[in-house]
Design a protein around this nucleic acid. Structure first.
Length: 401
RNA sequence: GCGUGGGUGGCGGAGCGGUCAAUCGCACCUGACUGUAAAUCAGGCGCCCUAGCGGCUACGGGGGUUCGAAUCCCUCCCCACGCA
């Protein structure tokens, strides 16, 4: 029922084209997985996103769990029925919220930090940063993570068993083990303790997954270990010793993109080649190229949709922000190289006007463009690998380097 | 014409004797955003510069009181409402 097959390997890099078979259909890889955290992509329908080439979507367990809505989904018979779609789906385990609502807030950083604890501008030590406010929203113990839910202050406990049980009820095709995503500012000692705990959580996740009647789902293990080579290697060794269907590479991914590349270089070559590898939460254009080059098969990311909501559009060679006054009279399409409907039919001026006037349609157009852009990129990447022209395509998009 | 209340930065609107170049919204400008607490967040927003607990000009116009006025007084202009 589940199968991952590599169809073609690039001659010069670790890039490969594959096909991932799930009970709800097939996904050609490398693939981008748009994120619909609470069951919607925000600004575009699943149907539309499908047309642009999205074959699978990511939904979040945490958000369905905290609100108790997973019970409703269960009554419907799972997410596919609830959302009324029959495409492949993934659910994240809630492990990211352990970070984003915990250290992420506390340290005022994302998964890739450019804020070195010792190298801040004067007065810019994280502790002096207004964002650095201890919120104590998440308490992590051996057992699991205790959240103080930001909406109502209620305490809420999530652990491996609960996450997997919930994910089974949600019924996505591909589900993830419960993990702790540490902070880019976590030190070696903490990260070491944390990965070891994540490994115990992985075993617990797996055991819970195996328990009871078999579901039509595949479970992915998650590689943690921060920016520490030996911890990442240990994680690969441990996680790949369990019979997971595939692997997710989890953040934190260091202090810079270079660190991220290093982490991928440490981990991917020693993971079982034939299994699918997912890079969790990464989705900048350059990151996708660098990930694919190192052997990543799938990416999920909030980037195209969130950036769109914030007025930013992907264009060849970077991004532009349509909120800026520079575009009010710009008759050009968002990206002259793009074949999407938005770029075909509308000017930057119009989209900019809508965004600045707070018209929802402006966001819808940008979401459409950004998703099209990334999904089309994936298509081009797949083709380039088949034709052994991956590096040429990378160069075309990113220039030299 | 009489009465009352007002005229503050692009707009709305605080301040009602000193620490006010002036709270706060909006608008505007710049930046961020990577398993979504995010249609969000951070910073800027009178003029000048050697960019500083710096200089200059400012709270309808003019004149005064005071060590000191956006804040008090006089006068003129304008606006809103009420009465004729």
């Amino acid at each position: 029922m589940f199968e991952f097959r590599i169809l073609k390997k690039d001659k010069r890099t670790r890039a490969r084209v594959g096909v991932l078979k799930t009970p709800h259909g097939v996904v050609y890889t490398p693939a981008f997985v748009p994120v619909a955290t609470k069951g919607a992509l925000r600004g575009i329908s699943f149907e539309e996103a499908r047309k642009f080439g999205s074959e699978i979507f990511m939904i979040n367990t945490f958000h369905f769990y905290v609100e108790g809505d997973y019970k409703i989904v269960k009554k419907f018979g799972g997410l596919h029925k609830f959302l009324n779609i029959d495409y492949p789906l993934m659910t994240d385990s809630g492990g990211f919220q352990v970070f984003s609502l915990g250290f992420g807030l506390e340290h005022g950083v994302g998964k890739i930090s450019n804020m070195f604890p010792g190298e801040n501008k004067p007065g810019q030590h994280p502790k002096d940063n207004p964002a650095f406010i201890k919120k104590n929203l998440v308490k992590i113990t051996e057992e699991g993570a205790e959240f103080k839910y930001y909406k109502n202050g209620k305490k809420l406990f999530l652990d491996a068993e609960t996450s997997i049980k919930t994910q089974k009820q949600l019924g996505a095709d591909i589900i993830f083990a419960f993990d702790e995503c540490t902070s880019p500012l976590s030190d070696y000692e903490y990260t070491k303790k944390s990965v070891e705990r994540t490994h115990r959580w992985a075993v617990r996740s797996f055991n819970e997954f195996e328990k009871g009647p078999k579901t039509k789902q595949a479970l992915m293990g998650i590689i943690q270990g921060g920016e520490f080579k030996d911890l990442r290697e240990r994680a690969v060794e441990f996680i790949s010793s369990l019979p997971f269907f595939g692997f997710g590479i989890g953040g934190p991914l260091g202090q810079s993109k270079k660190d991220m590349h290093k982490i991928l270089d440490w981990t991917l070559p020693i993971l079982p080649e034939g299994k699918p590898k997912h890079l969790l939460g990464i989705g900048d254009v350059d990151d996708i190229f660098n990930g694919v080059e190192r052997g990543i098969d799938t990416f999920d990311c909030v980037n195209p949709t969130r950036l769109a909501r914030h007025g930013t559009a992907f264009i060849r060679g970077g991004r532009i922000n349509l909120k800026s006054g520079r575009y009010v009279n710009d008759k050009n399409p968002i990206d002259k190289n793009c074949r999407c409907r938005v770029c075909r039919d509308y000017s930057r001026a119009y989209v900019s006007h809508l965004i600045r006037e707070w018209e929802i349609y402006g966001v819808m157009l940008l979401v459409e463009h950004n998703l099209f852009y990334i999904l089309n990129l994936m298509e081009e990447i797949r083709r380039s690998i088949k034709e052994d022209k991956f590096l040429e395509l990378k160069k075309k998009y990113l220039g030299r380097g």
